[in-house]
Nucleic acid binder design. Structure first.
Length: 289
DNA sequence: AAGGCGTGGAT
DNA sequence: TATCCAAGCCT
């Protein structure tokens, strides 16, 4: 094993959070749902949504049996509601192509909508104890510091990062799976983006960034994302109206939540194009069926 | 291959 | 208050 494995695995055994999707009774479907919800959404906000989701839809077949709009409604305010649509589509594909069982191969997972390289590797690793390089934002940051002596990884993922992550993977598949979740956890709890708790780090002595004096990030400026006044905010307002409504709503109910008409129409058209909103024949609007 | 895509807590 | 950030994916 790599020289970081033992201290990080030991640290994880002692400090890992008790998250429901990590428990032995968690199903592959539960793991898959957690991974989709956790894409760009913090754990604390996912926790209650995940519990409700799994109680209502304990299997892919249960979700596939309902309209996609119900998935969008249940998504609540997790953000990026296209993920709800894709999770519903994945449930349908799992029923149709995999007899209702979440596939275990990385390649089959990758073919499901909304599942990219990271999520496929995560599900294969965490639900099926396989050996895959799991490169999320936490792992990328940990490896950047530990090995490359950089405060932050490059803006877009490089082949070098994949090669590095693969080279560090323990050979035994179940151990590799635990290593992957352990490095993620280290990034989430200790090797954080803003104020890393280096005093609590189990591999501080071997950290290249620490040895270099923890130099500040020297790469290109990280582009801040605005939100107020954007199409994204407008889309969020429009969709919230439909989530809160029992059934279809009049156009006027949408118009009142955004005063700028050009932007409002553009955002509504985009929601319809995305399949998040269904324009009915009678002029009203609804969540998709 | 950058940029679009929600939301809210922390600093 | 404004900015940053949170288990990415898709085009």
């Amino acid at each position: 094993m790599n020289r970081f494995a033992e201290p990080i695995l030991d640290w994880y055994a002692e400090h890992a959070r008790d998250l429901p999707w990590r428990r032995p009774e968690a199903t592959p479907w539960g793991v898959l749902v957690s991974e989709i919800m956790l894409q760009q959404t913090p754990v604390v906000r996912v926790l209650p949504a995940w519990e409700r989701w799994l109680e209502r839809w304990p299997t892919p077949a249960a979700l596939a049996a309902e309209p996609s709009g119900e998935a969008v409604r249940a998504w609540d305010r997790l953000g990026y509601p296209r993920r709800a649509l894709r999770l519903h589509a994945s449930a349908c594909a799992i029923v149709e192509r995999h007899d209702g069982e979440v596939p275990s191969s990385h390649a089959a997972l990758l073919e499901l909508p909304g599942i990219g390289a990271y999520t496929a590797a995560a599900v294969a690793s965490f639900a099926f104890r396989q050996r895959h390089a799991v490169l999320d934002t936490n792992v990328r940051r940990v490896l950047a510091r530990l090995v490359s002596a950089e405060e932050y990884p490059p803006r877009s993922q490089t082949v070098g990062e994949v090669t590095l992550a693969e080279s560090l993977l323990p050979l035994d598949p179940p151990t590799a799976a635990t290593w992957s979740v352990a490095v993620m956890e280290l990034g989430a709890l200790v090797c954080t983006a803003r104020a890393p708790r280096c005093v609590d780090c189990p591999v501080l002595a071997g950290c290249a960034w620490q040895a270099a004096g923890r130099p500040a990030y020297a790469g290109p400026a990280r582009r801040g994302q605005r939100y107020a006044g954007t199409d994204r905010q407008c889309r969020g307002r429009l969709l919230a109206v439909l989530r809160h409504a029992d059934g279809p709503v009049e156009k006027a109910a949408l118009d009142v939540v955004w005063s700028e008409p050009v932007q409002r129409e553009r955002a509504l058209d985009a929601l319809i194009a995305d399949g998040l909103v269904d324009p009915l024949d009678d002029g009203r609007y609804a969540l998709p069926s």
